[in-house]
């Protein structure tokens, strides 16, 4: 019989990455593109809204990291079930991005990755570092 884990709940802390909107410094075109992608995520996705900051950091990195890989045609490895879970959200995201944002097809791989990095920074800003949600730092679930 499996024993109930008495392990303490996660107490992971996370470091602050951004102290201002990372889109503030980018050119208008990139900003417009990131905004379009961001808007899709915010309207349709839920993975970015885990309840705690440390989980959001992992979720954003996991899903958007794999999304970038998919968009540039890199092979995605999913060694753990958690990776696989990021991957399924990434697959849907990559598909919807490609479908909705025709301009993605015209971008080279070397342009896509920095764009998704910017998107990642922006989502981290919105959901973690710039977030007004006072429960993100609560130390248990």
């Amino acid at each position: 019989m499996a024993k109930n884990s008495k392990k303490d709940v996660a107490r992971a802390n996370y470091v602050k990455l951004y102290d201002h909107d990372p889109l503030a410094d980018v050119d208008a075109e990139t900003r417009a593109k990131v905004s379009e992608l961001e808007n899709y995520i915010m309207k349709n996705c839920l993975w970015q809204f885990n309840s705690r900051g440390w989980d959001r950091r992992k979720q954003n990195a996991g899903v958007l990291g794999k999304t970038a890989q998919l968009l540039v045609g890199e092979e995605v490895e999913n060694p753990t079930p958690l990776d696989k879970c990021y991957w399924v959200d990434a697959v849907l995201l990559a598909r919807n991005f490609t479908e909705r944002c025709g301009w993605l097809a015209e971008m080279g791989k070397d342009e896509i990755r920095p764009l998704i990095d910017k998107l990642h920074a922006r989502i981290d800003w919105l959901t973690i570092d710039g977030s007004l949600n006072e429960e993100l730092t609560v130390q248990n679930y």
Partner: peptide
Amino acid sequence: DELRVRYGIP
């Protein structure tokens, strides 16, 4: 969240 931490279930 607890199942993810304790049992690795996504």
